[in-house]
Design a protein around this nucleic acid. Sequence first.
DNA 1: GGATGTGAAGTCGTTCACAGCT
DNA 2: AGCTGTGAACGACTTCACATCC
Lengths: 215, 215
Amino acid sequence: MKFSKVPEATIRRLSAYVHHLELLEEKGEVVVSSASLAEACGVNAAQVRKDLAYFGEFGIRGVGYYIKDLADNIKAILGLNRQWRLAIIGIGNLGASLLFYKDFFKKNYKIVAAFDVDPTGVVGRVSERIGKPVEILHPDQLKEVAKDRRIDIAIIATPASEAQKVADLIAQTTIKGILNFTPAQIQMPKGFAVKNYFFTAVLDNVAYLLRWKMR
Amino acid sequence: MKFSKVPEATIRRLSAYVHHLELLEEKGEVVVSSASLAEACGVNAAQVRKDLAYFGEFGIRGVGYYIKDLADNIKAILGLNRQWRLAIIGIGNLGASLLFYKDFFKKNYKIVAAFDVDPTGVVGRVSERIGKPVEILHPDQLKEVAKDRRIDIAIIATPASEAQKVADLIAQTTIKGILNFTPAQIQMPKGFAVKNYFFTAVLDNVAYLLRWKMR
DNA sequence: GGATGTGAAGTCGTTCACAGCT
DNA sequence: AGCTGTGAACGACTTCACATCC
């Protein structure tokens, strides 16, 4: 274990490894080699071993990796051995769909609050679709609610024009992690974990590939 | 213009540049320097110039870049000067929310078809929310519909367990681009543009940062 | 003067190749 | 013998620094 600077790409791949290990576990497999895990995740075998080497030695030479053991270890590395409490800010179509995203439960994420400037907007329809409706609060309440409900991570799903305002609100709370779904680049003080995740950028990438590489 | 191998990260940044250039245009700005564009997008100024240099010379030394001109050029590079026709496959919460994602219109993407094995599922509620309901078709119809409606890109928003089946269906159509929203790694023959975009992987990244870098 | 465009340098991430265990 | 763990080689991306041009 060196634990120097871990590439961000490594973390992304660890997520993928966990997903595949869980599939193998369901199938009743017991051990897996770096080569086969690599193939399933579309990467190089040495890459798999290097990624793991940042955090320790999890395999057995001449054998491979015990699947359950490795999965547990990676989950611990990613912090998926505890529950992370999420707030969704901006309950439009995207925010609303996150409220109903079932796989959160598997992944140790739990939505504990939802915020929107217009609590009467999509909410009515949202409420229709779930037994116990999620209460939509006004962003003004963010600070106190963040503390009360111990929110760890805020997901910004507002229009881009509102993203910085929301970020400024978050900066005043105990929340330290942000997943920004808008195309806006947000500015935060040091000490915050911010990741952007704007999906039309990826779509643009597909369009670009189609535009040039092929046809 | 060298047009050798363009890093994927460059393409992602070009998307961000366009977004910011459009904001500047709305504000009535006329020229922008690489330094100021860089700051707004959270990158280095030399990076901006290098990114653009892959495709040509768009600036004027001693002056900067004409905003509208640069925006148009980047859009042409990304293929956003034409309309891309999308299909969404899997109309769960995520797929349904994409159906209503308004910004598609701005970005030259148009949803021309929606598929789900259960056309009676979310659809009823989906139909309630839009004047002219989107017709949800069965994936069996993919091949003929892809041709009729000239679908360019398929967005896979099914459960992960179905992703490969859907990919196999797509492989038999005229569709050449895929945006995969599931955590499953899909296998395609050569010549397809496939991008994965699974958002809990990014959330895992935030959790990891919180787990280690801070606290 | 001032900002772009770009070779060169530097940094970071990936792949190779083999030593080291089991 | 087989597969992991890892230094070293490689390749890719980013940043620097300055020549170039408006």
